[in-house]
Simulated scan of single mutants.
Amino acid sequence: MVEYVRALHPNPEQDGMADDIPDEKVPGCGDTVLLEYDEAPPVEEGDVFRDSCPSCKRHDARLEVVEIRAE
Rank of each mutant, 00 (worst) to 15 (best):
V65M: 10
D60P: 04
R58K: 14
P22E: 05
G28C: 08
T32A: 13
F49W: 01
A70G: 14
C53K: 04
E13Y: 13
D20K: 15
D51K: 02
M17L: 07
M17G: 01
S52M: 06
V48L: 00
P42Y: 04
F49E: 03
P27Y: 11
E64G: 02
V5Q: 02
E64A: 06
V66E: 13
Y4W: 01
E45F: 06
G28A: 10
D60I: 03
E71F: 15
V5I: 08
V66L: 15
L63R: 13
R6S: 07
V43C: 01
D19F: 15
P22V: 05
A18T: 11
R58A: 12
G46Q: 03
M1Q: 07
Y4C: 03
G16P: 04
H59S: 10
R58T: 12
E44L: 03
D15R: 13
D31S: 14
A7N: 10
A18V: 11
L34Y: 14
E64H: 08
E3Q: 01
G16V: 10
E45H: 04
Q14V: 10
L63G: 10
F49D: 00
E36F: 09
L34R: 12
A40Y: 01
V26H: 12
G46P: 04
D19R: 15
D15A: 13
V48G: 00
E24Y: 13
C53G: 05
S55I: 03
G30C: 10
P12I: 05
G28Q: 08
E24G: 09
